[in-house]
Design a protein around this nucleic acid. Structure first.
Length: 490
RNA sequence: GGCCACGUGGCGGAGUGGUUACGCAACGGUCUGCAAAACCGUGUACUCCGGUUCAAUUCCGGACGUGGCCUCCA
């Protein structure tokens, strides 16, 4: 299975294994994580889910033969938005700004990790925080200054973009173009308008760290360069993030890291996920459609949110709508019912479905992979449409024998079921996860028994009353050929 | 103003130089006390205008539209 990923650097799908220096025994991925100052919104969830799927796929492809996949997702806990909140909190509570900063970032980081876990994402191998790497950042800045790629001016240290001849190669923009269209307010101490800050001074009310250039704090871009180097080395395989980070953040990471590493590439493949809109509109606090993951989790299971995200290819824009969420939930519920009604599955060993894996390996084509899941679930519908045959077979599902009449071979049922479960696991979805019923099991069983007694006595009024009563409590009854079953309504 | 992406059936959403994506919804049917679920079957598409080609939804150019980046941003 050849893994091909769209590479922003080359603007085409590159085969990871064909890139120079790739080591299948040591696959490394870095993804830009959150700035922790507020609840994460659903747009923030997109890269987390997308790259979690990639992480799982990489593990599937490379860890089976003893290889190692390392996934790093940082937490940005040094930032001027954080500082602004810290200053407010410090003033309100009468505590030092450093303490306020630490409290805000610790609490927000914990919220974030809880949210992301609820979305079914595996924890990365490393979750470095910027504050833990200030020393490495300072060291890297010193190296940049020593190499002539950076200069000190009025307490700031700035990266000199003119020192990097291919600056702009990721965003495919030339310095001339950028300066022509620049709307940046140019600080007077900059040699070049596009020069960006590596280190800036902090005043007494702003968090800061001692440095050769005085007490100050790092610029935004340097943390990813420093942490990437510390945890993954000079060159790693995949660097991911939202498309908005392509410029300037990722461009600047490349400039810093490659300058320090004598031109060695920072990442072999650069990946960028598309943006998300809400009900056709850009998500913005001013529009009142700013949805946090936390709020969504109050109304929807994490699996539904995750599945909904994966129904659109990661590079496409996605319109996040209520209708789409309902559709996602319906599909998962259907699959769940099929899995539950299929014969007992006890670890039937199957290889990963090749078609499914091939779709994922083609630049993470999750919509096509999901379409393959539908095929697995629908495969080989019996040709016999008579009621009798349906009654006999209907509850099994998962046939794999086109044109068959009568019973489906149970082994095929098991194979498709096992394949479907394994494929779903590869994208991080467990459709069999039980939801806590809002009514005690004993009560449900008793009510079902009472209703069936009423049905037997042809007292359908009483039977319907019981069914409505349970429905009002959130339990849906279904009378199948094998008896009455129930599920949790949403 | 500069740069970039996208425009597929009622809706969502893949893909392809010539052959059914897929799903949801809808419609018809089977089953059912009724319902739900399940199952069978059916229909509708590639923004517009040029060009290349035997053939374009698919390649090229233009128009219109939507979104993004250029400033913090997933």
């Amino acid at each position: 299975m050849t893994l091909r990923l769209y590479n922003t650097l080359t603007r085409r799908k590159d085969a990871l294994e064909e890139l120079p220096g790739f080591d299948p025994n040591n696959v490394r991925m870095y993804v830009c994580g959150p700035t922790v100052y507020d609840y994460a919104h659903i747009g923030n969830a997109r890269p987390v889910i997308v790259f979690d799927v990639l992480y799982r796929l990489l593990k599937h492809l490379y860890e089976k033969d003893g290889g190692k996949v390392t996934y790093v997702r940082n937490i940005t806990d040094i930032d001027d938005k954080i500082n602004a909140r810290a200053a407010e909190t410090a003033a309100a509570k009468g505590i030092p700004v450093e303490q306020a900063r630490a409290e805000i970032t610790a609490a927000t980081a914990q919220q974030y990790m809880d949210d992301v876990a609820a979305l079914g994402c595996l924890p990365p191998d490393e979750t470095p925080r910027a504050t833990e790497y200030v020393g490495q950042m300072i060291a890297m800045i010193e190296r940049l200054v020593a190499a002539g790629n950076a200069y000190v001016a009025e307490g700031h240290v700035l990266f000199d973009v003119s020192s990097k001849s291919d600056y702009g190669k990721l965003a495919r923009r030339s310095l001339d173009e950028m300066m022509a269209g620049a709307r940046v307010e140019v600080a007077p101490y900059k040699k070049n308008p596009m020069d960006f800050v590596l280190w800036k001074p902090s005043d007494a009310t702003t968090p800061g760290w001692p440095s050769p250039w005085g007490r100050g704090r790092p610029g935004w871009h340097i943390e990813c360069s420093a942490m990437g180097e510390a945890l993954l080395g000079e060159t790693f395989d995949i660097h991911g993030g939202g498309i908005d980070l392509m410029f300037p953040h990722h461009e600047n990471e490349i400039a810093q890291s490659e300058s320090v590493h004598h031109g060695h590439p920072l990442a072999r493949i650069w990946m960028h996920n598309g943006f998300l809109q809400v009900e056709g509109e850009k998500m913005a606090k001013s529009l009142g459609n700013f949805i946090t993951i936390r709020d969504l989790l109050k109304d929807w299971p994490g699996e539904v949110l995750r599945f909904n995200m994966l129904r659109t290819h990661y590079r496409q824009p996605i319109d996040w709508t209520e209708q789409s969420l309902q559709e996602s939930e319906r599909i998962l519920a259907r699959w769940r019912n099929r899995l539950l009604s299929a014969p007992a599955y006890d670890g039937c060993k199957v290889d990963m479905d090749e078609a499914f894996c091939a779709h994922l390996s083609d630049d993470l084509n999750t919509p096509a992979a999901i379409s393959r899941l539908h095929e697995l679930f629908n495969a080989g519908h019996w040709a016999d449409t008579t009621a009798k045959a349906n009654e006999q077979i209907g509850s099994f599902g998962f046939g794999n024998v086109p044109g068959v009449t009568g019973f489906i071979d149970e082994s095929d049922v098991l194979v498709n079921k096992a394949k479907a479960v394994a494929a779903l696991a590869l994208i991080g979805i467990d459709p069999l996860v039980e939801r806590e019923p809002p009514v005690a099991m004993e009560e449900i069983d008793a009510q079902v028994a009472a209703r069936n007694a009423a049905r037997k006595a042809k007292d359908f009024k009483e039977a319907d009353r019981i069914r409505d009563e349970l429905l009002a409590k959130g339990i849906v009854l279904k009378d199948g050929p094998a008896g009455t079953t129930w599920e949790v309504k949403r």
